[in-house]
Simulated assay, not measured.
Amino acid sequence: MTQRKIALFVTCLVDMMRPRIGFAAIRALEAAGCDVVVPEGQTCCGQPAFNSGDTEHAIALAKQTIVALEPYEAVVVPSGSCGGTIRCHYPELFEHDPEWLPRAQAVASRTWEIMAYLDEICGWKPEGVEVMAKATYHDSCSGLRELGVKAQPRRLLKPIAGLELTPLAGEETCCGFGGTFCVKYPAISNAIVGEKADAIEATGADLLLAGDLGCLMNMAGKLNRQGSKVRAFHAIELIAGMGNGPAIGEEA
């Protein structure tokens, strides 16, 4: 079988706050038969600047990212928000730039959220993974609404022995993070995540899973402040067989 040569776009939050998500992504992709490269030229995708209206810096970061990623057959991202920025908003940024628009469109067309890529393109499922726990799943806004990531992570989680998935009321409702939203409107953000934390607790789950680290940090932080015993993980950590380490917020 010919290996797919793909670029892993790690994302800023994963790199700085939860590198094990990046290692889990590599582990799962390699198990699915991919030749994974982490391009050195990658930094931020430019989403915070783009969302804040700082188009100049968003374009500069987008150009740097395009140059780093365009040599590869596919770009895989363990984040719906960063994946959505590259796939949906890069062509928008270069709409009036005849030189960069085709390059942006080409990279965008090859960019995938990691669980969608493993499920839809690789047709892969985890084998020999066991997690004896009850979990619930939150659908992050960008992954769900921009990239259509919904069933794919659940299909990848289903083969995990011992894992019971229980529905989360309002699973498609924003957790209140929203990138810069939580900084600009902290009181509203806190109220939203408070409702989300209550819904998570009501499931009786041991684990909270999602596909975006920003959302997970926001929800885990609120749960921890409320004294909850629910532990948060990026879904790819469990799928890659790395769900036995410290949860988000528990790192030393």
Rank of each mutant, 00 (worst) to 15 (best):
M1E: 09
A7Q: 04
A7H: 05
F9M: 05
L13T: 12
P19N: 07
G22E: 04
E30G: 00
D35G: 06
D35Q: 14
D35V: 04
P39N: 03
E40S: 15
G41D: 01
G46K: 08
G46T: 06
G53D: 01
H57L: 14
A58H: 09
A60Y: 09
L61V: 11
K63R: 15
K63I: 13
A68K: 04
P71A: 04
V75E: 03
S79H: 03
I86E: 05
C88W: 06
E92A: 13
E92R: 14
E95H: 11
P98L: 03
P102C: 00
Q105C: 12
A106F: 13
A106Y: 14
S109M: 09
R110K: 15
R110I: 08
T111W: 13
I114G: 03
A116C: 08
Y117I: 02
L118T: 02
L118M: 04
W124D: 00
V129K: 12
M132G: 11
L147A: 04
L147G: 01
K150A: 13
Q152G: 02
R155L: 02
P159W: 07
I160D: 06
G162V: 03
L165M: 15
L165W: 05
E171Q: 14
G176M: 02
G176S: 07
G176D: 00
T180W: 10
T180C: 09
A187S: 09
A187P: 00
A191G: 14
G194P: 03
G194Q: 04
K196I: 01
A197M: 12
D198Y: 10
A199C: 01
G211D: 02
G211P: 04
D212G: 00
D212Q: 02
C215A: 05
G221D: 04
L223S: 09
G227P: 06
I236S: 06
E237T: 06
I239K: 08
G241K: 14
G245R: 11
E250V: 10
A252K: 15
